[in-house]
């Protein structure tokens, strides 16, 4: 089973969801882990925007329960709302995952109750990360913030998105923190990314992700398909690893 660990929905319109699934079908992707960053993608979402994101993900998951696995988008700026959404979407709804974007560092203490609840729910957390030569956005996490958070909760399942942009170093940073994985989503399809990652961490800690629809399923999957690995390693990265975490 091929599972894309990093997909966004822009809304819950049928035309949008159908287009996403059609493109996934052409790329041979069985299931998509979807998040919404609300319909405006603002850097610091309001509580209402978190709610809007949750509603779109719930609607999509309810319509296509065999294809979509939902993230609940949370924020340190709205802890009460985030906890409410985790109850509604994860504890009592179809969502299995938690999404952190750029409104706080992953080790921000304000997130402590949210991580505690994620642990109770056995919900894996995906944290956006990047290290940018051009300068990060305000409170945009790097791999160091995720490692710092993961060391506080050794039972937490957490992965950093986009291999933090700096793939030459990412696997070295997370190597000694075994509850941290990473996804391959986003950025240009530079040659040798996955081979470089696997020099420092096992394939079990790498998840295929695309960052569609901003990115292409075919292009982003080629990072994994072009790696010099065994079929077993490839299958793990393309879906078995996240499937193990999700228990689907």
């Amino acid at each position: 089973m091929v599972i894309d660990s990093h997909v966004h929905i822009l809304n819950a319109d049928e035309a949008h969801l159908t287009k996403l699934l059609h493109a996934a079908d052409r790329a041979g992707i069985d299931r998509l882990c979807i998040s919404s960053l609300s319909r405006q993608w603002v850097e610091f979402p309001t509580a209402d925007q978190l709610d809007e994101a949750a509603c779109d993900v719930l609607a999509a998951c309810e319509r296509y329960p065999d294809r979509f696995i939902g993230f609940t988008y949370v924020s340190a700026d709205h802890v009460a709302k985030s906890l409410e959404l985790l109850d509604r979407c994860n504890a009592n709804g179809p969502c299995r995952l938690v999404k952190l974007w750029i409104s706080q560092y992953a080790d921000d203490p304000r997130l402590d109750p949210i991580f505690a609840r994620a642990l109770e729910l056995d919900a894996a957390v995906m944290a956006h990360t990047f290290v940018k030569a051009t300068g990060n956005m305000s409170r945009e996490s790097t791999y160091h913030h995720v490692v710092s958070r993961a060391r506080q909760h050794p039972q937490l399942k957490i992965w950093l998105a986009h291999y933090s942009g700096r793939w030459e170093e990412a696997a070295r940073v997370i190597r000694d923190t075994p509850n941290v994985c990473l996804d391959t989503s986003g950025g240009e399809p530079e040659d040798g990314i996955v081979d470089c990652l696997l020099r420092h961490i096992p394939a079990e800690r790498v998840f295929f992700g695309s960052d569609a629809p901003g990115r292409s399923f075919a292009v982003q999957m080629a990072k994994v398909l072009s790696a010099n690995v065994t079929e077993d390693q490839r299958a793990k990265m393309l879906g078995e690893n996240i499937r193990r975490w999700l228990r689907v």
Binding site: A27, E188, P189, E190, D191, G192, I193, S216, A218, V219, Q220, M221, A222, K223, L225, S226
Partner: peptide, 10 residues
């Protein structure tokens, strides 16, 4: 600079 499979599959 890019893995060629990206554009082949595209």
């Amino acid at each position: 600079l890019f893995t060629p499979l990206a554009n082949v599959n595209k």
